[in-house]
Design a protein around this nucleic acid. Structure first.
Lengths: 344, 344
DNA sequence: ATAGTTTAAGAAAACGTTTTCTGGTGTACT
DNA sequence: AGTACACCAGAAAACGTTTTCTTAAACTAT
């Protein structure tokens, strides 16, 4: 009883025709099939509740209908939203999502790409990828070339050293914009809590912060730049480190919302009022951001929408549509809430 | 140049042996291969950087190495953590995770199961599933039977009407435990903010709340039960609804943390202090829960760990290990923070 | 009526593996 | 010397599809 799957042959037998014909009906190929047999076949398919075996189909076509998505951490709502967006779009076209949670581990990233190759993924999205390690770059670059040669469609969300279609999420612009906003409110002594050094995203945001200051001719005070790790806990620790210089600082720009939230929590815990004593902003617009005390002023990177766009792009490419625009860069927007004091 | 993938034949040619032998080396089959040829083959594999085509392998073995996970919303950290746990475990065994985001939509759930069948998933995890709809149950039941017949390993996290291995997450117990805790602090007039009617989880938690009261001989006051939807926004609305009766209530049990967080936010917004004026508790122990004001007292359902357990169970089953325990029910624990006032 | 075209259908090869079957060589035991 | 058996290796079939190639019948146009 183990092996009793219904195949195209069973359908053929029931419909009184050849497997060839059944296949033609299934894929409504341009090879003509009389409407009578077509009806018979459809009847038989329904009768037997037959579904073609994707694996067998894949072997012939060398297509798996798998779209791989590599993320740092699926629990991070940034990635979760993106994955959701992609999944919702591509599932309408009967593709399936295969996610890899790397925890920013280089080992795991390499393993993921390997798996994607072995499983003949039709497309791969590098939603989050650790790029600044030299050796990693080299190996990964080869792997990616390999995938490309195989015909895999590839998209990256943050800039990559390898040549793939890339979506600029506007990380630098985001940080610059939020910093500019703080400057516009009259703040001049501004601290910055950076993300981990190894991430590209992190570097870009740091750049954005510095750029904003430089545009105003304000020089960057390295004492006020704290290295952190994009996490809530990291934000708390950063707040403690900041305590020494807190009197001279009127605002803190955090590299992301998680950090900003941790920062605010600890400041509050230390009896320092936000925004009365010090203003705090972040970048990301996490779902939690609007529920903090005070609600966090931040930058929205609409990643869910971006996910949908990526999905659309992939489907177009995979269906062989010739005229396909690269996915548009997503528009960021400032979300003004209550964590910044107006000094003017 | 399109089709230039390296196959087992290329390896055979380079190693000077037959594809058969190469296959035997790859799968280190029990059929003996001389150590000399074995070495040659391994050499050739490395040389050509060959990886066997999973699709072709799958066709023979009728195994896809795909583990499907059906979730309501991947952005919900409950599901994200579970998926993460599963992924981390199974990826060590070269299985891949295929997620379906249903948004609690029946259509999408059915579609997901169909896709899982078509793609010959080796295992399916019903992490979240909409169960209380009659018609749905019937159709889904058939689909599930179908999958089982196909040899798919199936696990469900909340109770299902179909016969599958099931993990009891202790929803009822969780709600009962947290309610009991509140009672132990001397509270007697306790409101409850329930989840959506259609979800099993929701029903179970409501049961737990009522049970706790009944055990003390306290009768349930239906005016103090508010139907909500498991969301932060829902919690806010519930707070507003509660405003009329707020004076007679000393504590509110929310069916989940998201609701509790929303509740606290709005109460705070209305000038009602937690826990001084009213105590609030939730269930889930979301990452955010420890960062709210005040930090939320809640019940931890260790879903990440559960994910790992599920992964382990699946791997055991898929590897054909005979003596496999059903995945153990996960132990809940009370997380005591600062959102409950001690009335004694 | 004949050649050409359209319509329809199936047989067989192919996709890249694994597995079964067959066979050949050497070693050990009567 | 002959039989048994372990060891090693390859040819060929199989998995469930799609695609190419072939054939046949039925029209159409001369």
């Amino acid at each position: 009883m183990e092996k009793s799957e219904i195949t195209i042959k069973d359908v053929a037998k029931l419909a009184g025709c050849s497997p060839t014909t059944v296949s033609r009906v299934i894929n409504n190929s341009d090879h003509p099939v009389s409407s009578k047999t077509k009806a018979l076949v459809k009847e038989a398919i329904k009768e037997l509740n037959f579904r073609p075996n994707r694996i067998a189909q894949g072997l012939k076509s060398d297509k798996s209908h798998i779209i791989g998505v590599i993320v740092h951490d699926i629990c991070d709502s940034y990635f979760a939203q993106m994955v959701k967006g992609i999944e919702e779009f591509i599932s309408d076209y009967d593709y399936i999502i295969n996610i890899y949670n790397t925890n920013r581990g280089i080992e795991k990233e390499l393993h993921s790409v390997n798996m994607l190759k072995v499983n003949r993924a039709d497309a791969v999205v590098f939603a989050g990828s650790t790029l600044l390690d030299e050796e990693y770059r080299k190996i990964m670059g080869e792997y990616v070339q390999n995938l490309k040669k195989q015909g895999t469609v590839i998209v990256g969300v943050t800039p990559h050293p390898f040549e793939i279609v890339n979506i600029e999420l506007g990380n630098e612009l985001a940080a610059q914009t939020i910093t500019d906003y703080v400057l516009n409110k009259g703040h001049r002594k501004i601290a910055y809590v950076a993300g981990p050094k190894i991430l590209n995203t992190s570097q870009q945001r740091s750049e954005g912060f510095k750029k904003a200051l430089k545009c105003r001719g304000i020089e960057v005070d390295n004492r006020l730049i704290i290295r952190s790790d994009f996490s809530f806990e990291g934000g708390r620790k950063a707040a403690l480190e900041l305590l020494d210089n807190i009197d001279e600082v009127t605002a803190v720009v955090a590299a992301n919302d998680a950090t900003a939230l941790g920062l605010m929590w600890e400041l509050n815990n230390q009896g320092i009022k936000v925004p009365q004593d010090v203003s705090v902003v972040g970048v990301d617009d996490l779902p939690e951001a609007k529920y903090s005390y005070p609600p966090l002023t931040t930058i929205s990177l609409p990643v869910y929408k971006l996910g949908k766009q990526i999905g659309e792009y992939l489907i177009n490419k995979l269906h062989g549509n010739k005229i396909v625009d690269d996915p548009a860069n997503v528009q960021i927007s400032l979300i003004e809430r209550g964590s910044v004091r107006d000094l003017l």
